[in-house]
């Protein structure tokens, strides 16, 4: 199919983009890499009145080291994340997960911020942002504000972004020494969205347990979700199989065309046990 008609404006700055969005009203969309938006338009799942192209705003692109964190411009492409030395060094979770995002040609165009702002329930980057406790920098008509990842993802494609508000940067704190990450996903085809996925950060060891844990599942609910039960079990030093047994306790898990709800709960538990076993094996070997 072909997209319906829309007006096209190219913004030179983030401020101009926000002003254009305010003028155009709720039916305008920001166009970043377009790798999800244009597919939706081709299938007429969305029929915006205007696309505001933010793709050439240089200030929204690139990765910068700031106090204790990496600040990733919303327009930084997936391929740039994958090639970044800073990301590889400080955010190995993101460095690992980025290779599971679609295919090379999509990663050459798709943007980090676009993925976060879209908030697909089965996408990797929102899950990583949540596991890493990222802070979203937003710009709206009333000026800039920051929202923590825990308050950002609200539901199916639903975020804390108000209509006309633009995600400009994602600031990710660099994990402390002694922290480690885990990542795994199940997909039927290479590069496809996950049927179930896990992105997690474990704080430094304290006895048998952990200082803290952020366990995030994706592809099983209406958004990337933390598992408070698994986090509590890990912090308390429970064995991997015990942590896995409560992986999805209290979470609203949905079945979809790939797998039933019970299957998704099973997948989530398997992924968590595998990653906890792997980490435990590696730490015992050292």
């Amino acid at each position: 199919m072909k997209s319906s008609s829309f007006a096209y404006r190219r913004a030179a700055t983030a401020e101009e983009a926000v002003a254009l969005a305010r003028e155009a009203g709720e039916d305008a969309r920001f166009l970043a890499g377009g790798q999800s938006l244009l597919a939706a338009l081709n299938f007429r799942l969305d029929e915006p009145c205007m696309l505001i192209d933010i793709g050439r705003i240089g200030a929204l692109r690139g990765i910068r080291r700031v106090e204790g964190a990496l600040k990733i411009g919303a327009l930084t492409r997936h391929a740039e994340i994958a090639a970044s030395v800073e990301i590889a060094k400080h955010l190995p979770l993101v460095a690992q997960a980025i290779h599971e995002v679609a295919h090379p040609a999509i990663r050459n165009r798709g943007t980090f911020g676009g993925s976060i702002a879209l908030a697909d329930a089965a996408a990797e980057m929102p899950a990583c942002a949540l596991a890493l406790g990222a802070r979203m920098h937003l710009l709206g008509p009333d000026g800039p504000r920051r929202v923590a990842a825990d308050e950002f993802f609200l539901g199916l494609y639903e975020t804390a972004l108000e209509p006309g508000e633009l995600l400009t940067h994602v600031e990710i704190p660099i994990p402390p020494a002694g922290a480690c990450h885990g990542f795994a996903e199940l997909a039927r085809r290479r590069g496809d969205y996950a049927m179930a996925g896990l992105a997690m950060m474990l704080g430094p060891r304290t006895g048998a347990g952990r200082d803290w844990a952020r366990i995030v599942f994706f592809g099983i609910a209406d958004r990337a979700v933390r598992s408070p039960s698994a986090e509590a079990a890990i912090v308390a030093g429970a064995a991997p199989e015990e942590c896995a047994a409560c992986a999805t306790d209290g979470l609203d898990v949905f079945g979809d065309m790939n797998a039933a709800e019970s299957t998704k709960r099973h997948y989530a538990a398997v992924l968590l046990r595998r990653e906890l076993d792997r980490i435990s094996d590696e730490e015992n070997r050292v």
């Binding site: 166009l31 790798q35 081709n42 696309l51 040609a105 999509i106 050459n108 165009r109």
Partner: peptide, 27 residues
């Protein structure tokens, strides 16, 4: 496929492979 999955429309843009079905001509 017109949604970026099949790869038949892949071309080079400034040296990098891209899906020409997921890019507007104006872009």
């Amino acid at each position: 496929c017109a949604h970026g999955v099949c790869g038949a429309c892949t071309v080079r843009l400034d040296g990098a492979s891209v899906r020409s079905c997921l890019m507007l001509a104006v872009q």
